[in-house]
Design a binder for these strands. Structure first.
Lengths: 134, 134
DNA sequence: TGATTTGCGTAATGCTATAACACATCTCCA
DNA sequence: TGGAGATGTGTTATAGCATTACGCAAATCA
């Protein structure tokens, strides 16, 4: 069983929660150093991120190699992430119907899904408004 | 307008087509060197991959940082990739319904999608059979 | 022919992630 | 109490993925 350093996990999660945008592992590392709380090394950060991910408190954004704190509280459902290419913000939403459809499509060829990744790049509402106004 | 070295593009595409599994940019590089066709450098390979991607002949698998040749002929629709975690093979399929649903979900919060990424990790039919038999 | 544009090839570097190992802590048992 | 074994942490080093910067060559145009 995992018996992680809770302090590290809390610190890493706090950093992710302070950002709206996805944050890279090395950004976390840098913020830790600047805050002088502690100097961590990459494996420490990656282990913390992995533990937080296992608990459902953090999601990895595959298309950005970066991480975001979960905004939905803990959920077992995989989520759909909408990533704004303008401001970098990420919206999470859960759509059981889509996931069910995906699973059935995969199943048509005998494929058994284990984990899904759905990421949509585009422009968020406020950036769109901004560009239309300006 | 892009006026790429077609020879390079063909060579890179040929390597991707020889593999069922996703191939990293550096794998391509290594195969080129071994075949002694030419010694390429990373930017050359990345540029070729980008050009092939623009043409719809290659897909990037975000969750693996790797690339596969498109099996569907050129298509404008984004595709759903089912990745077997056992044998590493990738199946592509196109599901307009799912994409439409995704777009409408995103639109509910005013988000305008530009590009989708749907990757499903799991176990393919033949690996599943194998594991059930053995 | 010379000026300009465009893309290629190379060297160098940066970013992302993990392997390997030494050390600390906990557990179990005598 | 203390020694053996298991488990996890922190650190060093390195592996793997990707891009920047820049000089050169080919095409385009005056």
């Amino acid at each position: 069983m995992s018996r992680h350093n809770e302090k590290t996990l809390e610190d890493v999660l706090a950093i992710l929660q302070r950002h709206k945008k996805p944050v890279s592992a090395y950004d976390v590392l840098d913020e830790m150093s600047v805050a002088k709380k502690r100097t961590l090394s990459p494996p420490t950060v990656y282990r913390a991120l992995a533990a937080l991910k296992d608990r459902g408190q953090v999601h990895r954004v595959e298309s950005l190699n970066a991480y975001v704190a979960c905004r939905h509280g803990r959920h077992e459902q995989p989520c759909i992430m909408s990533i704004c290419e303008d401001c970098g913000s990420v919206e999470e939403c859960i759509a059981p119907d889509v996931l069910r459809d995906l699973a059935s499509i995969a199943a048509q060829s005998g494929f058994t899904p284990v984990r899904h990744m759905i990421e949509i790049h585009g422009v968020c509402a406020s950036c769109r408004e901004g560009s239309m106004a300006g």
